[in-house]
Structure formats: structure tokens, C-alpha cells
């Protein structure tokens, strides 16, 4: 395996993490736990497959995957609004609602998989972004606009968070909502917007998964949303550091895939790397991990 190959495979694995983590940072910095990233991604993956399939069947050709992407954004947004309404409007416990939203995403995608495609396991083949004959390396990745979006999203979210008034308000709302409210910042609105953005961006991550594989398979996110959440914590709620953590986790996964078959190290040990890193991060060994102060708290303001 060449180094180039390693890097391209790492990027391929990293894109959904990058998108989910970038979205999750916005939600977490606004004070809402990103436990639901998994659900947004799964919903996004299904909507992308369904949208792309429907558009392909209608003969829309090259536009088909883009309609899938749009559907994924809307699907992620819909799930995130359900979460936001429960946690903000009805002040439900974020962990409880978060788990519920994730379970709902599993159930809904399974239900619609049966309804639309009459299958309990996977959708039929759907149009994706890849170009025939471009292989599996950087060339094929470069043809996939979702890869570009995934790479750009991290600095974009960092810019939004640290350079724009909206970002300043997100950070204030997640840290000290009462202070933000006292200077007239509409706390509830800012939180809804941050969560909606996180649902849309994480939905894109899901779209990447299903469009890359040309089909939706049941439960295909396989915990990627939680890994993205771990990356956010590992990156101490800074989008750029979280992005780096995503790359680190993805490279560990690539390493594990490439070490399969060789007998050097049991692959299970390599598989543990992301989780071990997360535990190390949470134990405070990589500097103090300080979450946004109002994270997970229901607020009356």
C-alpha cells in the first residue's frame, strides 16, 4: 500500500466524520448535545438514497444525486427540528430525547425502506457522483462534490463560529444563555438555528455514505455519529481541532483495514484506537476539556 493510497483511503473514511463533527460543533457550542448526530446521518443517508433513486427513475440523470443531497439536508433538518423542539420548546432532557431521536431514525429508515423498496436490508442501486474508470484514489474523490464540501465545511464552520456575529451569539448562548438574553440576543432562535444547521450538515455526511456506496443499507451509519461526537470532545469543541481529530480517527481506521490480513498486530487493537483516544481526551490528558457551560441544560430564557 502506498502512502498516497493510505491518504486517499483516510480521506474517504474521514468525510462523513468531518461533516458530522462540523455540524455537531455548532449544536454543542449552542448548548445542545450532539448525541443525535447518528440519527441525522442515518436519516440523511436514507433520504439521499431515496431522493437520488426517485430522481434517477424520473430520468434526471446527472442531477439525480444532487436531489439526493437536497433530500438528505431536509431529512437531517427535520430530525434536528424534532430534537430542538423537544429539548428547547418542551425542555425535555437532551440525553433522553437524543436517544429517542436516534431510535426514531433507525425505525423510520427501516419503515420507509420497506415501504419504498420492499426490502428489510438495502435499497436498490442509486445514482452517485462517481465517474466510471476513475478508480478509488484521489481522482475519484475529486469527482465527488461531497468530498469537497466535507473538506471545506470544517474551516467554514470555524469561520462562522469565530468571525461572524451569528457565531459569537452561538458561543454566548451555549456558555451563558442568561447573559446573552440580557443583551437582547434571541436565545431560543439562535439555538434552533444552530441545531438546524447541525442537522443539515450531518445529513450531508449521511448522504455521502449512501451515495458513495450507491445504496442505503439498514443501520449503515454504524456509530459514525458517535465517533464524530467523540472527535468534537477530543477537539475540545473547536471545529478545527475536531476536524483534525476526525482525520486522526479515520487514519486509525485505515490503518486497521490495511493491517487486516497481516498478522503484525491483532486488528482489534488497532480498531480500539479511536475509542482509546476518546477516553484519553475525556480523562483530561490532552489539556483540560471544558465543555460549553450551558451544554445539556434546559434554559428558561
Amino acid at each position: 500500500m502506498s502512502a498516497l493510497n493510505f491518504l486517499s483511503q483516510t480521506l474517504r473514511i474521514a468525510v462523513p466524520y468531518l461533516l458530522a463533527a462540523a455540524g455537531g460543533v455548532l449544536s454543542e457550542r449552542a448548548g445542545l448535545i450532539g448525541l443525535t448526530l447518528e440519527g441525522y446521518m442515518l436519516g440523511g443517508a436514507f433520504c439521499a438514497a431515496a431522493g437520488s433513486y426517485a430522481a434517477g427513475a424520473a430520468g434526471m440523470g446527472a442531477v439525480a444525486p444532487w436531489l439526493g443531497v437536497l433530500a438528505a439536508v431536509l431529512g437531517g433538518a427535520a430530525l434536528s427540528m424534532l430534537y430542538a423542539a423537544s429539548a428547547i420548546r418542551f425542555k425535555a432532557d437532551q440525553i433522553v430525547v437524543g436517544i429517542a431521536v436516534n431510535l426514531l431514525a433507525v425505525g423510520l429508515t427501516r419503515f420507509f425502506l420497506r415501504l419504498f423498496f420492499d426490502s428489510s436490508s438495502n435499497s436498490p442501486r442509486v445514482p452517485g457522483f462517481d465517474v466510471k474508470g476513475s478508480g478509488t484514489g484521489f481522482v475519484s474523490l475529486a469527482h465527488n462534490p461531497l468530498v469537497w464540501i466535507g473538506v471545506i465545511m470544517t474551516p467554514l464552520v470555524a469561520w462562522l463560529l469565530y468571525r461572524t456575529p451569528f457565531g459569537l451569539r452561538i458561543r454566548a448562548v451555549g456558555e451563558h444563555p442568561a447573559a446573552a438574553a440580557s443583551v437582547g440576543v434571541p436565545v431560543v432562535k439562535v439555538r434552533y438555528m444552530a441545531v438546524a444547521l447541525s442537522g443539515m450538515i450531518a445529513g450531508l455526511g449521511g448522504a455521502y455514505l449512501s451515495l458513495d456506496q450507491h445504496q442505503f443499507t439498514d443501520g449503515m451509519t454504524a456509530g459514525r455519529g458517535f465517533i464524530a461526537l467523540a472527535a468534537i470532545i477530543f477537539g475540545r469543541w473547536n471545529p478545527l481541532l475536531a476536524g483534525l481529530a476526525c482525520l486522526l480517527f479515520a487514519s486509525a481506521e485505515t490503518l486497521q483495514i490495511q493491517l487486516q490480513g497481516t498478522q503484525m498486530i491483532p486488528s482489534q487493537f488497532v480498531e480500539m484506537i479511536p475509542y482509546v483516544l476518546t477516553i484519553i481526551a475525556l480523562a483530561g490528558l490532552v489539556g483540560r476539556a471544558s465543555a460549553p457551560a450551558a451544554l445539556g441544560k434546559t434554559t428558561t430564557e
Binding site: 458561543r171 454566548a172 456558555e175 451563558h176 446573552a180
Partner: peptide, 10 residues
């Protein structure tokens, strides 16, 4: 306010 309304991380 009596209890400061400042965001410590900003």
C-alpha cells in the same frame, strides 16, 4: 446585574 451577565469564554 448583581450576578454578572458576562460570558467568561468570550
Amino acid at each position: 446585574h448583581q450576578h454578572f451577565m458576562l460570558v467568561p469564554t468570550l
